[in-house]
Design a binder for these strands. Structure first.
Length: 485
RNA sequence: GUCCCCGUCGUCUAGCCAGGCCUAGGACACCGGCCUUUCACGCCGGCGACGCGGGUUCGAAUCCCGCCGGGGACGCCA
């Protein structure tokens, strides 16, 4: 039987990195086995769902390089792929449960249930539904209905049964039905079925073979297995991925900083780096190779190699990976991605020659960790009216020779005939060194300051070449003005 | 509180199932050196972990028991 897996997020308006990793592992698993990857939108909680929120999911997945074979937008043989559009399907299976006498109406109000939970907790008992309404008579129900109460439908959980499943990453897991918190709700009082129920119906009908999801779903699994059985379906295989933790070792959430895919995209992480990094959170290739393209990930991915211990989300390594990817990215693509950051920083990029911009990026890419660093590092090339830093000024003031270097450099460039090439620049510097009898830092640093106002930066010959004679002169004039007070 | 899951360098992890090849390997980070007439890159080196206690065994990171620690779940959220 061919592998069919699904990623089933609820549209909350943002894609959490934990969800992104779940999607990725499902995707890798599907592609590795030549199976089908399905996208299903879990929006039974209608109040929270919006079209925009669904689009956020599409965008995040596409950005990461994940495509799906079946889904709300592309369709497929087992649609619809949005739970809010599957309501009559669920109704049919609710009827089945009713016929079998496996569900019953419960008229307790949320307030009553909350009260009950509090008391149980106070007594040191695990909170659970007691089964209060399990044996209500018709008259009692009628009475409660007259009070204006709308019932929920609860599933009858068997008294004392050990539910066992073989988890693909955790191993054998056994839970007694007594630990399930009592009879659980399958249909809300507003008639809307609840997650644990719809997920079973959908996974069964969509012929899902492997359910790969976060560890926080382990406690749902026995309930779902009970429903599979009640409905006459065979449960799929389960694989529960270890949690992703924040630096404080608690479940990663918004208070830990950036946790949405979009934030990483906006900061300027390359999708290849981000995906590569996520893949290594809880999984490790047998051969130990860490920089891996999507194809290489697919080739190597094995659910058996997924770690069962949780991982802390620490972006230090992501930063390194991003640098690695930035340095090997095609310049054209990199330029396309960097231009928006330049625009945001106030540059009108239409003023720049595209080829020239690419050359600038070619030399500055080495310095970038994230794309949003680009405007800062590229400033040296883009802005001629810079300010000479205080550090640089005092450096020049320390030794009169240093200023002389700048002045001589200026005259030599001014009287230069023809193009200012890298070689020409090196020659000129050598000449200055000989004529003024200076060398080392005393020779190079003044020129650097005159050209950039800073004490560090890219290699001078390259800078000079990309600037051209006119801009070099303009810059030296600008610096001289600031230093000669 | 109850149940479930987890515990190897600061972090991601290899090794654990099939005990000796482990004076525990790699990567990131950190520190130092080299390279570079700057910074970064690159190269070389260093620091650094089997949660604790018992047991089994000639031998345990690996198997067993207990403890401790961390996390998750306990919704008419998904």
């Amino acid at each position: 039987m061919s592998v069919r897996v699904r990623f089933a997020p609820s549209p909350t308006g943002f894609m959490h990195v934990g969800n992104a990793r779940t999607a990725l592992f499902n995707y890798l698993f599907a592609r590795h086995h030549g199976g089908t990857f399905i996208l299903r939108i879990e929006d039974t909680d209608i109040e929270r769902h919006s079209e925009e929120a669904v689009r956020v999911i599409y965008e995040a997945l596409k950005w990461m390089g994940i495509d799906w074979d079946e889904g709300p937008d592309v369709g497929g043989p087992f649609g619809p792929y949005r739970q809010s559009e599957r309501l009559n399907i669920y109704k049919e299976f609710i009827e089945k449960l009713k016929e079998k006498g496996l569900v019953y109406e419960c008229y307790c109000t949320p307030e009553e249930l909350e009260e009950m939970r509090k008391e149980q907790l106070k007594r040191g008992e695990p909170p659970r539904y007691t089964g209060k309404c399990r044996n209500l008579t018709e008259e009692e129900k009628e009475k409660l209905r007259k009070m204006g109460r709308k019932p929920v439908l609860r599933f009858k959980v068997p008294e004392d049964r050990t539910i066992v499943f073989e988890d693909l990453v955790k191993g054998r897991i056994e839970i007694n039905s007594r630990q399930l918190g009592g009879d659980f709700v399958v249909v809300r009082s507003n008639g809307m079925p609840v997650y644990n129920f719809v997920v079973v119906v959908d996974d069964a009908l969509m012929k899902i073979t492997h359910v790969i999801r976060g560890e926080d779903h382990i406690s749902n699994t026995p309930k779902q297995i009970l429903l599979y059985e009640a409905l006459g379906f065979t449960p799929p295989a389960f694989a529960h991925l270890p949690m992703i933790l924040g630096p404080d070792r608690s479940k990663l959430s918004k208070r830990h900083g950036s946790t949405s895919v979009r934030e990483f995209k906006e900061k300027g992480y390359l999708p290849e780096a981000f995906t590569n990094f996520l893949a290594l959170l809880g999984w490790y290739p047998k051969d130990g190779k860490e920089i891996l393209s999507m194809d290489e990930l697919i080739k190597r991915f094995d659910i058996k190699d997924v770690n069962s211990a949780p991982a802390i989300f620490d972006t230090t390594k992501l930063n390194w990976m991003n640098q690695v990817y930035i340095r090997s990215y095609p310049v054209e693509k990199l330029t396309d991605l960097i231009i928006p950051y330049l625009e945001k920083a106030g540059y009108d990029t239409s003023n720049f020659n595209r080829k020239w911009l690419e050359k600038v990026i070619e030399v500055t890419r080495e310095y970038l960790t994230v794309l949003s660093d680009a405007p800062g590092y590229m400033e040296t090339f883009l802005k001629d009216d810079f300010e000479v830093s205080e550090e640089a000024k005092s450096f020049l003031a320390e030794n009169p020779d240093r200023l002389k270097v700048i002045e001589l450099f200026y005259h030599k460039i001014k009287s230069l005939e023809g193009e200012l090439s890298e070689e020409k620049f090196k020659e000129i510097i050598k000449e200055i060194g000989k004529e003024l009898k200076v060398k080392g830092k005393n020779l190079f640093m003044p020129v650097r300051i005159a050209l950039t106002g800073k004490m560090s930066g890219v290699e001078l010959p390259i800078l000079v070449k990309l600037l051209g004679k006119e801009r070099v002169l303009k810059r030296v004039e600008n610096s001289l003005k600031q230093v000669n007070l």
